[in-house]
Design a protein around this nucleic acid. Structure first.
Lengths: 145, 145
DNA sequence: TGTTTATTGCAACAGAATTGCAATATAACG
DNA sequence: CGTTATATTGCAATTCTGTTGCAATAAACA
């Protein structure tokens, strides 16, 4: 969480005509993490500082303003800071030990989306791409996708 | 819903040591649909026939046995029969009108997953890939991913 | 510093999913 | 085919997650 990030955040909020409040900034600071977080976890961190309702309302606002977006990992959705703050990437989640491995090679997925969208005359806005399976350490004998 | 499908279902249940019950078979029959269904919709169909709790418990079992899996469309998860019953495919969901367009070209995504998994020595089991955006009719002027 | 009104926090509510448990139905066996 | 063991069901009660209405509060701006 750099000072730049905070300034960027403030800029997004105010330039869109919203007020810069203690609750909003506190909520934003809770989101800083290298990994996407569940809403439950964010609420737990917020406890005593920001009311649950405000967290929900601001997460919704943040999503609308593109500050955060949701990813779907391990059959639960989680909140992740957007590309402006943390580079968007995809994950391999291990069903055995829960380890999350970042997918390095992002270019292919972008190309694929362009390709598919072009064929359907579709303007893509956001996408979900997550893979579950077993990591090296948890690999079972039989493996199917 | 062919007789084969029912037999296949029965085989999966019994060969895994579970009992073939009225509730389970009824729940399975509710899942037949060309599109993934929300849990709410399945529960509505089950009303009066199978108790909500049994639906939940059996969907969980079905998932464990690979009879169904979940997809994530429009920020809601839905239940879809697995490849054994209905061919798994992906979707473009329009944020404007809600239309769902099937992605035809599935081979690329499979290849991509193989590629990424191989690099990380990861055994993929299931994946989520969904794209939201705007269809031809709803296309706004500015388009970003 | 005062005024306007967006935003907050509380309380109450709604809906989705889970748990404990007694009743029931399935599978297996004599 | 009838009996038995127990997996499974359905109900009631509960927990968890997210939402709504509204009065109190605090940003923004003159």
């Amino acid at each position: 969480m750099s000072a730049d990030d905070i300034n960027n955040f403030r800029q997004i909020i105010t330039s869109n005509g919203y007020r810069l409040t203690r609750a909003r900034e506190a909520t934003f600071r809770l989101l800083v993490s290298s990994e996407p977080q569940s809403v439950a976890k964010i609420l737990a961190k917020a406890k005593g500082t920001v009311d649950r309702v405000s967290v929900y309302r601001n997460l919704e606002l943040f999503e609308k303003l593109g500050i955060v977006h949701r990813v779907y990992i391990g059959w639960k959705h989680k909140i992740e800071l957007s590309d402006d703050f943390v580079k968007h990437h995809h994950h391999l989640s291990c069903l055995g030990c829960g380890k999350i491995i970042d997918i390095e090679d992002e270019s292919h997925i972008d190309e694929f989306i362009e390709h598919v969208a072009a064929r359907a005359d579709f303007a893509p806005r956001r996408h979900i791409f997550e893979v579950d399976g077993y990591c090296h350490d948890c690999k079972p004998t039989k493996t199917t996708r």
